[in-house]
Design a protein around this nucleic acid. Structure first.
Length: 421
RNA sequence: GGAGAGAUGGCUGAGUGGUUGAAAGCACCGGUCUUGAAAACCGGCAAAGGGGCAACUCUUUCCUGGGUUCGAAUCCCAGUCUCUCCGCCA
């Protein structure tokens, strides 16, 4: 959510900056609505003052007059309310402004590589995809998932299931023990207002799985990422500044409809309706967002370093960033079967954009209430890490070496193969 | 699912029709005292929005939405949420 005052005072700048985002909201009549809104407020307040004075005077002769004023106020309020609603509906659908560091661009082609790290080991055989490997091992079963549930789901079985669990635990341990995040096991469903707070609603309702409930009950959605529920921990709260930064980590399933990605990544478990992700969330003083973003991104790449997986870090351009982000780094891991890098983490600073929606604040040194800064990042996507390990650690015979860092989490198993060990 | 209780400022918690934006306490900020700190004492301290260069000023807000009244935190109606007890259940 944007500060209307800022928009009012810097409309051309605002409009210019927002034009670089994938924005389809009509912002042109924003100023007009704002003007109308404020005029109506003034008119209304004048009448309210009159009414209040009459009431205070307890002058019975004026009581009839007061009734008249009441009905006028009612009309004005209604009109003002309608305009306010329109204003809010436009405002809540405008994406965050990109930070000045962010490169301009329409789509992912304008993203910039910042760093490439890790050794891509050349193999003397043709490397298989994770789904070929997994199906051959009889540890990834897509057909079974189709039978029980539908497309874009998978059964992970046996040692690969154990590996998935190991990855998740390994990441949680690093982030809690080394990086100072507090572990949370949160609800996997979120209320409408919570989804609004982080920016999933109202604009992206089509991407969300909604739970079917009695019509009376408040709407609930399966979380598309733990970011939603972790960030909203500070919703409607005034945090003490000495409590900042708050850092949370959770490993949760995530649920996404993947509407609009028909035909994309249909094979394998790159793009699923349900997947595990270890998510990092930071709540900071709003001036510290960019520092925290660097820190958070390092926390994510640290995992890949320890797993000895080759990756690169890129900065997303204005047109490729998510709705709430002001600056985003994606981390992409090398997938030998595709001979390219694929996203495994996305770390974003949202500035005060989400905090405004959530009404999350802290007291600054002047004792004023100011909006917090919020950040989120994957640390990392567990499913895709599984894929990356399978493909990068595969052997010619289709077995998979367990990365050193994960062996303590796998009863010291060093290799996954058809011959059960 | 059945029965009951409740929702007030950052927190705790008074308040049942007329300067109540709201007592008191805690927390927080400033000061006195102290070598320093603590304690004690004194003072300050809600938010959002509108107008004004500013000092300032106006409006709204005691869960939400309606209603009664000249006037509502307080009365009426509807709803939401929370808690307790019983039942069922992972």
């Amino acid at each position: 959510m944007h500060d209307l005052k800022y928009i009012r005072e810097n409309f051309e700048i605002f409009k210019n900056k927002i034009s670089n985002r994938n924005n389809n909201s009509n912002i042109d009549n924003l100023l007009d609505l704002d003007k109308k809104n404020r005029n109506l407020i003034q008119e209304k307040e004048l009448l309210e003052k009159k009414k209040k004075d009459i009431s205070k005077s307890k002058d019975e002769k004026m009581f009839e007059k007061s009734k008249e004023i009441s009905s006028k106020i009612k009309d004005l309020s209604e009109e003002q309310n309608n305009i306010k609603l329109k204003l809010n509906s436009i405002l809540s659908s405008i994406p965050n402004l990109p930070h000045s560091d962010v490169p301009d661009g329409k789509d992912e082609n304008s993203n910039k590589v910042i760093e490439t790290k890790g050794e891509i080991k050349s193999k003397n055989f043709i490397e298989k995809s994770h789904y070929e490997l997994g199906e051959k091992l009889n540890m990834l079963d897509f057909d079974l998932a189709t039978k029980t549930t539908g497309s874009r789901f998978v059964f992970v079985k046996d040692k690969l299931a154990m590996l998935e669990r190991a990855i998740s635990n390994f990441m949680l341990d690093i982030h809690t023990l080394e990086n100072g995040y507090k572990e949370i096991s949160p609800p996997l469903m979120a209320s409408e207002n919570t989804m609004y707070g982080t920016g999933q609603l109202p604009k992206f309702e089509n991407d969300q799985f909604e739970i079917k409930l009695e019509s009376k009950e408040e709407r609930k959605f399966l979380i598309p990422t733990a970011e939603v529920i972790l960030t909203n921990i500070v919703k409607n709260k005034i945090v003490k500044s000495n409590e900042l930064p708050l850092r949370f980590v959770a490993s949760t399933p995530c649920f996404r409809k993947e509407a609009g990605s028909y035909g994309k990544d249909t094979k394998g478990m790159i793009r699923q309706h349900q997947f595990y992700k270890v998510e990092l969330v930071s709540i900071v003083e709003n001036s510290k967002c960019l520092d925290e973003l660097e820190r958070m991104t390092n926390c994510a790449t640290m995992i890949l370093d320890k797993l000895e997986l080759p990756y690169r870090k890129i900065i997303l351009c204005t047109g490729d960033m998510g709705f709430s982000a002001e600056k985003t780094y994606d981390i992409e891991v090398w997938l030998p079967s595709e001979k390219r890098y694929r996203e495994i983490s996305s770390c974003s600073s949202c500035g005060t954009f989400q905090a405004r929606r959530m009404n999350s604040r802290y007291k600054n040194e002047k004792n004023e209430n100011v909006f917090t800064g919020t950040l989120n990042g994957s640390g990392l996507a567990v499913g895709r890490t599984l894929i990356a390990i399978m493909e990068n650690y595969q052997q010619q015979d289709g077995s998979i070496i367990v990365p050193n860092a994960l062996r303590p989490y796998m009863n010291n198993l060093d290799k996954i193969s058809t011959i059960s060990s």
